[in-house]
Design a protein around this nucleic acid. Structure first.
Length: 563
RNA sequence: UGCCGGGUCGUCUAACGGUAGGACAGCGCCCUUUGGAGGCGUUUGCGUAGGUUCGAAUCCUGCCCCGGCAGCCA
């Protein structure tokens, strides 16, 4: 029950689980698994599945296995089995001692295959790939039975054992289930269950030259592990009859239930492994861990937290219809998390010199600044103040537009944690017309940021001490694409044409408070009034960090100004 | 045009025959030493046409639209 007294609503998967528990199905157990193929890096879409599977296991006091679906050695690599484990752990989940591989079951899988042959439910087929395609029929026409479909059990067994022994060349024969070539479901038209591949496997080495297909391996692997609910994405819906067929025919001790949900899509980015790979290959991004990538490695480096990702997974929910989630939802999650946790700092991205004409030359002082207004326990710090400062170029306007509250000639603003200053004059470059310096007077009575006479200002701006700040490179990341759904390209264009040219803008020489020299990668900061930033884990050096912008702060002035 | 699965605010998601609700986004106001955060308020939706029913988002039928499926990929 929630606070309103209404029953807590659950998604359709948890509804099924609740029903199963009520009916005592699977002895009331809940056991899920996350089954990635180790052929690429994990991305936000996988995170949804991870949170679902591990999350459900947690909620029902069940278990969730991590199982690598490594049935195709030509596509899989150890590099990925390592990065995947790292990503799942980073997200905050634990498979304890239940790390499995489909290849753990190659012997079992093989024995079951002989059993199928013995039952007359599988046969060795000599059709090549092209012929098989012809025999398969089409979406609207039934297929034809293979001429090898009625071989004797003895011949099938002999041939299959010789396939295993390596007597036949790659592609020359397959083992196929004997189901129904006229089935309206193409997956049931005598699907291949073993193919010959003389490939080195990352775990089993050269032991095998025949490898099982996904449909055959997956259901049996689930059954082996006593999985109760095998949660996968919608495109496997058509495979469920086959999943059930294998387990029914083989009479496995367990029969997990496959449940399909709609995978995550997020506007202005893409999750397709193929396309993500192309971004890397073309050099559009620097690699799979580029902070602009939606890979978990990328968003981690970008400064996203596991808490935010988990919250996002919860918020988008789980259902069966295709969706395109709003980027704003993700950004909300990270802002909400970081607002409470991030240490504040002042950073000036586009510096403009501000000189306080009535501040004694050569003087300086340390002012106290609050580290996080949301969390007093985070304490305060000292910020060096002086006669010459840098402020943000955008915080000054020679001719202010309506509604602009920041600095302009004659206007008074507050320098955060410091003093009120009033602009009296400014200087411009005679050639470019660019403002080069502004001259202000400060009110010594307003130290700390409050006037002594109750005088108010409409704006507070950030600043750094020109003589005592540090310089750093700051990388401003934005959305990857210029359109919500780049895969849905208009005539004559491809998704590549929609890459955002400003996905990364680099600020070479930002000015920051001196303590930021000690910024440690992985610790999130809020640069006040700008956004959340994190020191880059690859390109920062001790004492000289490089910062990545995780997300901007909401900017209601920008919205107003755009009108 | 075969089979399977879907269509509820702009977005995501509830409702399980009984007042269409929440979150995000938007808008307005209040508050604010971040034009941040926060508080309050508010606009917007059941694909369509019928049927059953006292009553339909929910059940039935037709239509429309969207997605998936013809790898020895997963």
């Amino acid at each position: 029950m929630n606070g309103s007294g209404k029953p807590e609503s659950v998604d359709f998967i948890r509804e099924i689980i609740n029903e199963d528990i009520k009916n005592g199905k699977h002895e009331g157990r809940v056991h899920t698994r996350f089954p990635p193929e180790p052929n690429g890096y994990l991305h936000l879409g996988h995170a949804k599945s991870i949170c679902l599977n591990f999350g459900i296991a947690d909620e029902y006091k069940g278990q969730c296995n991590l199982r690598f679906d490594d049935t195709n050695p030509t596509k899989e690599e150890v590099e990925y089995v390592e990065s995947i484990q790292e990503d799942v752990k980073w997200l905050g989940f634990d498979w304890e001692d239940r790390l499995f591989f489909a290849s753990d079951y190659f012997d079992v899988l093989y024995d079951y295959a002989e059993k199928l042959i013995l039952m007359g439910k599988a046969f060795v087929c000599d059709l090549n790939a092209d012929q098989m395609r012809e025999y398969r029929g089409t979406l609207t026409e039934p297929g034809k039975e293979s001429p090898y479909r009625n071989r004797s059990i003895e011949e099938n067994l002999d041939l299959f054992r010789r396939m295993k022994a390596g007597e036949f060349p790659e592609g020359s024969r397959t083992l196929r289930a004997r189901i129904d070539m006229a089935s309206p479901n193409i997956n049931m038209r005598d699907p291949v269950i073993y193919r010959i591949m003389f490939a080195h496997h990352h775990r089993t080495g050269d032991k095998w030259c025949i490898y099982p297909m996904y449909d055959y391996a997956h259901c049996i692997s689930d059954a082996q592990e006593g999985i109760t609910h095998s949660i996968c994405t919608l495109e496997f819906e058509d495979h469920r009859p086959l999943y059930d067929w294998f387990l029914d025919v083989l009479e496995t001790p367990h029969h997990p239930q496959q449940i399909e949900f709609a995978k995550l899509n997020v506007a202005y980015t893409i999750f397709s492994k193929r396309r993500l790979n192309e971004l890397v290959k073309r050099g559009i991004t620097s690699g799979w861990d580029d902070p602009a990538m939606p890979s978990l490695a990328g968003i981690r480096r970008r400064g996203y937290t596991p808490e935010a990702i988990r919250k996002f997974a919860t918020i988008v929910g789980v259902a069966k219809r295709d969706t395109l989630s709003d980027m704003a939802l993700l950004e909300y999650c990270i802002r909400e998390d970081l607002n409470k946790k991030a240490q504040r700092a002042m950073a000036v991205l586009k510096p403009l010199k501000l000189i306080i004409t009535n501040y004694p030359d050569g003087e300086s002082e340390e002012l106290e600044a609050v580290n996080n207004p949301e969390d007093p326990a985070m304490g305060t710090r000292k910020v060096p103040f002086g006669r010459e400062l840098y402020i943000e170029r955008d915080d000054f306007m020679e001719n202010p537009v309506k509604g602009y509250f920041r600095l302009f000639p004659g206007n008074e603003v507050r320098l955060r944690w410091a003093y009120f200053v009033k602009c009296n004059d400014f200087r411009k470059d005679p050639v470019t017309g660019e403002v080069t310096e502004i001259y202000c007077t400060y009110d010594p009575e307003s130290k700390g940021g409050n006037s002594s006479d109750g005088r108010k200002v409409k704006s507070t701006i950030h600043w750094v001490n020109a003589g005592k700040c540090i310089s750093a490179e700051v990388r401003l990341y934005d959305r990857l694409f210029t359109v919500p759904d780049p895969a849905d390209a208009e005539e004559g264009k491809t998704w590549i044409d929609y890459i955002n040219p400003h996905v990364l803008d680099i600020v070479k020489d930002a000015k920051l408070e001196p303590f930021m020299a000690g910024a440690v990668p992985g610790i999130n900061y809020q640069f006040e009034r700008l956004g959340y930033f994190v020191a880059d884990s690859k390109d920062s050096a001790p004492g000289s960090p490089v910062f990545n912008r995780t997300v901007t702060l909401k900017d209601s002035w920008a919205k107003l100004a755009a009108k």
